[in-house]
Design a protein around this nucleic acid. Structure first.
Lengths: 223, 223
DNA sequence: TAGGATCCACTGGTGGATCCGT
DNA sequence: ACGGATCCACCAGTGGATCCTA
């Protein structure tokens, strides 16, 4: 099995080498090699896989870093793949700063910065049988960037006009807005219909699985 | 010994009753009654006494509450008293919001709100022999409030003019400004000499022991 | 002696995502 | 199928103060 990694990769080539070494490894053996508690099953282990892969690749930050590999400008995202070879879930991108992002253009947004260069690591299968698929570095094409920008602008436009409660996950072709909170409590504030501040649930950006599925197919077709 | 208290007191009378019941109790017996780890000695137990008294009186919040007894508008402060009957330390009031408080008048300040109504609980003696002295509720007299306002205005004036690095603990007759951070690191920002933002160490307001000593004497003289 | 430095507990917010009714 | 709801780990910040040299 791949050796445990703790130091951060120095360049993209080293990151690529390390990532390739993970390919085909089962999550169980990775966890064992890093003395990582993966947890058996479902609901109480939601973020564990992502953190396991971070450690296996020597990602810095843990949290509070703007990206997983700040020196390389690369963001790491795991993506669960089902038996049919397509993503089983949408992908969380980042939180929305309500009251701030409405006035931030896509070109300067946190979301765009995170998506500018992503190392996608597919996790294939279910439960204890999950293993690492074929990872790949990705940058959005200019066409993809344009559509993401359009989705972003649409959502931020709705928020800016006081439509936070009308902005559902149905808005956006590839990039959508959904709740992002440990519970349903209204711990954030946003502009309401009449321009006043109202309490609301925190939101985040997510990529629809249609989009990540398309990225995966492109990557498979262009080795 | 006094019984363990967990619910919050409903009114000032109940708070006074509970507080009076603590008088003369040793910290060791209070801790035992509440199953509280007081810790043996010095450096690793700095805030323990305050938290013990909070629990003994049923203070709410723990943290993040604006006051210890929000419904009563009362702040709880323990104050260490040495063998000569005078405070051995200054008293921390609250943190300074650098970049905000400079523009906040004393009348609207967090510091004034905290000091508006304080339950002082003297802690008499040293080490394992410490016990609760004679607690008392206090409100600043208008003369005291004026002097505190003057100290506050002086300090905030210096900060507003970019003098953060020149504002030492020597400024202020009763209310002083001192560092407030787990380490000496510059984790806050303030306006510098040339109007630019500079990194600096977080600060807090403290009451000089001269002042708390005077309050104590007044309380002893007016039973 | 007191100004500047430091220590612990606790928790809200963030980053990692997946769960689960309709 | 997917929109809305939820779960865990981690850490910086806050609130409780006292330590410790020059």
């Amino acid at each position: 099995m791949p050796a445990a990694r703790r130091s951060s990769p120095r360049d993209l080539a080293e990151l690529a080498t390390r990532t390739e070494a993970l390919r085909g490894a089962s999550l169980a053996e990775l966890a064992w090699g890093l003395a990582f508690e993966l947890g058996g099953d479902g609901v109480r282990t939601k973020g564990k896989v992502g953190q396991l892969i971070e450690r296996a690749l020597g990602a810095t930050g843990g949290s509070s870093a703007s990206r997983d590999f700040p020196d390389l400008g690369v963001e790491l995202k795991t993506i669960p793949i089902g038996v049919r070879g397509v993503p089983t879930e949408s992908t969380f991108v980042c939180a929305i700063a309500l009251g701030v992002d409405e006035a931030t253009p896509w070109s300067a947004s946190w979301a765009r910065a995170k998506l500018a260069h992503v190392l996608w690591v597919p996790i294939v299968g279910e439960g204890a049988a999950r293993k690492v698929g074929a990872p790949f570095l990705w940058r959005p094409t200019s066409a993809q960037d344009s559509q993401l920008a359009a989705d972003y602008d649409e959502a931020m436009g709705i928020l800016g006009l006081g439509g936070v409660e009308g902005l559902t996950a149905r808005t956006g072709r590839w990039l959508q807005v959904r709740p992002k909170a440990p519970d349903g409590r209204k711990r954030a504030t946003a502009v309401g219909p009449d321009g006043e501040w109202i309490a609301t649930v925190p939101r985040g950006f997510y990529l629809r699985s249609k989009f990540t599925g398309a990225i995966l197919r492109d990557a498979a077709a262009t080795p």
